[in-house]
Amino acid sequence: MSWEMVGIWGGALLTLCLYSFLYRDNPFYKFAEHLFVGMSAGYWAIYTIFNVLKPNWWDKLVGAGDADPQLIMIIPGLLAVLMLMRVVSKLATYSRLPLALIVGAGAGLQLVSFFQTNGLKQVENTVIPLVGSGVGPTIDNLLIVTAVVCGLVYFFFSKAHRGITGGMANVGITMLMVAFGASFGYTVMARISLLIGQAQFLLFEWVPTIPRILGL
């Protein structure tokens, strides 16, 4: 039995084990699930160590190849050590320093990125003339502007949804629901595609090997 066979059969059997979850929880699923968690954790650990920490930190720190050692890399090294101090309960407090760096950098970067791409850019794109080329685009543009403005009203927290605010919020949530329906309908296709991918694997790669394995 070749390695290729081992791969196909291992993959196919694990696939079937996981699908058995659709019927109900059972020992096959438990086995595959535990194996999946363990193996994928191992995969990510190796990948992080050898593909991130080594080239982006260690190689730069010691100056791999003909590069000069970058002593500034001692700082993230120290922060990383502090991070790992969590396992020693007396020193766990110090892990707050690297956490603070992570949260601060994340918050700052996300603030500008989200504000630019999801905030201002969307506002800019909504500043469109209502009338222009024909009836169709006019209705389209009116609907888009209404959806955006009323949708924003729905998100008001400090105003009760009554009166005009309530009316607009109602229009807003209705538009959101239409959007959710559309998004759901659009997604169905992708999900079926995934099943098709797995079905192709089982039908066209695994099934043909069954007679061979059984010696038929």
Partner: peptide, 8 residues
């Protein structure tokens, strides 16, 4: 409609 809703 979807774009308007998503944008909000």
């Amino acid at each position: 409609p979807n774009m308007g809703g998503q944008r909000a």
